[in-house]
């Protein structure tokens, strides 16, 4: 009981934080819309739109990274198709909002959109998870990569969502405060899962599947649950992405995107929740910081940095920056 209360308290605290962020960002306006969901008048705020959008991307990347950490880091299922789940979420939510509920109030639109995004993505995750149960290691990675690419190619061929032109005119609802709040909630949810019975079972499977099975854990069921939860969150992240960008193209969701998320996990340290956050932070902020260099050379240097950090970390510090350590507020007591 005490634990639930403390989590609730944390969430309330961050809700307050989100309200304050939006209050400041919107140039001290108190209309209810600008406080939680609507895009505030961000140009009157304290920081430039450029940094504002980087912070939003950072939040979405953290959500993606911790959702992958659940699969890659905790359960030891190496998957390379996370961009596919994100794509499903993004397109589902955008379609629900623009085709099914074009006239509903935005709170309902966003709620239904994100929920449908998560649910549909989780359904696909369930399907992929159950069909891949026999595979391990790099084979699982290859199959999930295949699924991710198939999802993308199918989306590319659906003309209703824009096909190769991309999907435009998606209403923009996300602002810094809401992304911040949802990021924190996601992190806390994943932390609670990790520290609970399910998470213990996942860690046991990662260490030794056979031994876990002997201890009475059903590895198949746990693996499928990991897939479903992870793809649900990735789908929701996709939905947030759709409603913060306002534009979707299948080019965003190639397997390079999956590799980016893997790189975030790897740089921070596979198996560490704090690591996933640190990795997402570094790989989102670093390339933007090096944009000057990119202006100089005229080449998208971001991917070279991803690649180099991945290789160097693997050779010099294979356990990642955080190793197995967690920050205090994320450690399991």
């Amino acid at each position: 009981m005490k634990k639930i209360n403390s989590t609730l308290l944390l969430i309330l605290m961050f809700l307050g934080g989100a309200l304050i962020i939006n209050f400041v960002m919107s140039g001290f306006s108190v209309s209810p819309g600008s406080l939680l969901w609507m895009k505030p008048g961000r140009f009157d705020g304290l920081i430039s739109p450029y940094y504002y959008s980087i912070l939003i991307i950072l939040g979405i990347n953290i959500i993606l990274s911790v959702s992958l950490a659940l699969l890659n880091g905790f359960t030891g299922l190496f998957t390379m198709g996370h961009a596919g789940f994100m794509a499903i979420g993004a397109y589902t939510s955008a379609s629900v909002v623009t085709f099914l509920l074009p006239n509903a109030p935005f709170v309902i639109q966003l709620f239904c959109g994100s929920l449908a995004a998560g649910a549909f993505s989780a359904l696909v995750g369930f399907f992929i998870g159950t069909s891949c149960l026999r595979l391990n290691g790099d084979y699982l990675g290859m199959v999930t990569l295949g699924f991710g690419e198939i999802i993308r190619i199918v989306l590319l061929n659906i003309d209703a969502v824009g096909g190769a032109r991309g999907m435009t005119d998606i209403p923009v609802y996300m602002n810094l405060g809401s992304v911040f709040l949802l990021t924190i909630i996601t992190i806390l949810v994943i932390k609670r899962i990790r520290d609970g019975r399910l998470g213990r079972a996942m860690l046991a499977i990662k260490e030794n599947e056979m031994a876990a099975n002997m201890m009475g854990i059903n590895p198949l069921s746990i693996k499928v649950r990991a897939f479903v939860i992870s793809s649900f969150i990735a789908g929701v992240a996709g939905s947030f992405f759709a409603h913060s960008e306002g534009y979707l193209s299948t080019q965003t969701f190639t397997f390079t995107k999956s590799f980016e998320v893997i790189a975030m996990n790897v740089v921070g340290g596979l198996g560490s929740l704090s690591g996933a956050i640190v990795g997402a932070g570094i790989l989102t902020v670093l390339p933007e910081g090096l944009r000057k260099l990119q202006d100089l050379t005229g080449i998208d240097i971001r991917m070279i940095i991803y690649a180099l950090t991945m290789v160097l970390i693997m050779i010099l510090r294979p356990q990642g920056l955080m190793g197995n350590k967690e920050w205090k507020w994320l450690s399991s007591k």
Binding site: M303, M310, V311
Partner: peptide
């Protein structure tokens, strides 16, 4: 090693 290979490929 697999992650390194992906990294080398991107590089």
């Amino acid at each position: 090693i697999l992650i390194t290979a992906i990294g080398v490929s991107l590089l």
